[in-house]
Write a protein that binds this DNA or RNA. Structure first.
Lengths: 338, 338
DNA sequence: GCTTGCGATCAAACCGGTTTAACTGTGGAT
DNA sequence: ATCCACAGTTAAACCGGTTTGATCGCAAGC
């Protein structure tokens, strides 16, 4: 394996000089620079990132720890889009994204500790729990971080935020505008901040219209749970004329379940999703949903972190608010109730 | 930052001894071991992975370079499931998965070079192109690798394989069994080995039944392309009575397009997908498809790589063959043709 | 003519671990 | 009593870069 020493020898300089040629931290004469670069090219030398990481105390890596069951990550469209967005920014600095999937709280703690001890320069925190121990842990480990999505307000870390409340309000306004009054909500897991927040936004929006926001069922973002929640709502005495789902997957499963028991969508039941996954536009009926720009979330998170690492004062970043996309699943007024 | 030196001092031993306590490469007396562990716990010390990486020439990291447009990665269900599977194995050795997304061939080359220079101990190769330069590049860089899915036969790297041909044959057999004769195929991009192979398998299976395998349209796995390919097939003079899609997303988009022009599924047109994504079972009609265990792919790929790194002779691994899952989109015999 | 200043370079220390060759003390064999 | 084997430990070299204080040659300033 060829080292900086070999390059230095070939160019007739010291290794310090070779290093300076690459870092540019001190002036180097054009002649020397050329000799060094030639020698490096000749020997096909690339600096060892391991050695560089040790010397600079930077590993050029951002950590992302996912504390979920692998199967759930798999079905979650958020994950892949977010990672793609973050990477598109990190790549410009030739930084990498180090993924770790853990299943127990101890594993999670260890993962963050090992990241803090040199595997990563900073981490991205997603899926915040209502009482999440991680911000405190990271502050303790002195590991720079960015929090994606809402987090408790006196935030120790910069955040990437988007106004979901407005989008939820738009959805409810849209349905009310069509004449719906009994509107139900299938939420995400209440333990998560975003699930919690969207549900609160739904309750608020309903209250703003003087409607009863009691029809809320908790789901877990899976198709299975969307189907079950829908069944529960349709079995109720006074079934809703519209259901607002916290993501598209649950909405699609609900849509299908409704159709399978002869409930017509949108005539008997209006349905809205959240995310705007690729398939939402390709269903029968196509799905009214809220378009979230998850790729931008990833991009912004990476940007915030890079600025942070560059020494700037960490600042929250806002994403353009999610946008309601009206399609067929909410077309027309609700059928007259009996 | 507390170092191994501090721990050694606190325990009254040399740093070499501290190191040996953790690596277990030489016998250490129980008394010393206890003193060292106590001191480490007291000081809250965890070995620096950067220093360890330099000294051991191992970074405890597997690289995964994705040469695709970020937006496409996002829609691909393969990616998240595969990563989850791989991580579930790597986690047991506290290894990480380093992701890099690149968009140009030069970036790709650089990414692999930098991985080879210490960022990763090995890499996973997915989405092989028909004439992929990467196996040769990696061999050149002396970077251990595992290839996921088919690869040209005198393979320089161990592979993780699954018999897609059999699954495609099952699909065709199933449709022929129902009485279909004009069966079309919407393939994946022909530049990819797996897309190429599945298409070849389709052609073979049709030939085995003495049927004309000419109705093949190339797609790119996106919903958009599924819809367009379907439109083209349904516009043809002699439209097919069944369409075999190379993935579920294209199949669902095709299903929707057919329905939107009044073609009944499965009565007028039978449809099959490939992947068995979560939503496939939750559509109207639910989708007949091929269940691929992508999580296992990821798991096996990681296992092969770890064994390789442990010094074992690299060996190909086989995944249980994909399984046909019959649902409503192919129910019943085709309507009588006019 | 002698300092002063400065651009260019070098040697050595350093980052924080692992690994090796050598050393010590103890008990068993001869 | 002497030698040997061996478990337990250490000091020092090493991994491959970066960074710093010192050095050197040379032109400008007085």
């Amino acid at each position: 394996m060829v080292t900086i020493e070999d390059v230095a020898r070939a160019a007739g300089v010291s290794k310090g000089t070779v290093s300076l040629v690459y870092s540019g931290k001190r002036p180097i004469s054009p002649a020397t620079r050329a000799r060094v670069l030639d020698a490096a090219a000749e020997l096909d030398w690339v600096p060892s990132s391991r050695a560089r990481a040790l010397a600079t105390r930077r590993s050029q890596t951002i950590g992302l720890v996912l504390a979920r069951d692998p199967e759930i990550i798999a079905t979650d469209s958020f994950f892949a889009r977010f990672v793609a967005g973050a990477e598109s920014v990190l790549a410009t600095r030739s930084m990498g994204l180090l993924l770790q999937v853990v299943s127990t709280p101890e594993q999670e703690r260890d993962a963050y500790r090992s990241l803090a001890r040199g595997r990563a320069d900073a981490v991205i925190l997603t899926d915040l729990l209502v009482d999440d121990p991680r911000p405190a842990l990271l502050a303790d480990l002195r590991l720079p971080a960015v929090v994606v999505g809402a987090s408790p307000d006196p935030a120790p870390h910069p955040r990437v935020l988007s106004d979901d409340r407005a989008a939820v309000r738009d959805v409810v306004d849209h349905l009310v505008g069509l004449g719906h009054e009994r509107i139900a909500h299938v939420s995400g897991p209440a333990g998560y901040v975003h699930g919690h927040d969207r549900r609160a936004a739904f309750v608020d929006a309903m209250a703003a219209h003087g409607l009863d926001p009691a029809l809320v069922v908790e789901g877990d973002f899976s198709a299975q749970s969307g189907r079950e929640a829908t069944a529960r709502l349709l079995d109720a005495d006074d079934r809703p004329s519209a259901i607002v789902y916290a993501n598209d997957v649950m909405a699609i499963a609900g849509l299908n379940h409704a159709q399978s028991r002869g409930v017509r969508v949108p005539d008997d039941l209006a349905i809205t999703g959240f995310d705007d996954i690729e398939l939402a536009a390709h269903l029968t009926p196509s799905l009214t949903t809220v378009q979230t720009d998850v790729v931008s979330w990833g991009r912004r998170a990476a940007e915030v972190l890079l600025r942070h690492l560059d020494g700037a004062v960490p600042e929250d970043a806002w994403i353009a608010p999610s946008r309601l996309v009206v399609r067929e699943s909410t077309a027309g007024a609700p059928a007259a109730r009996t």
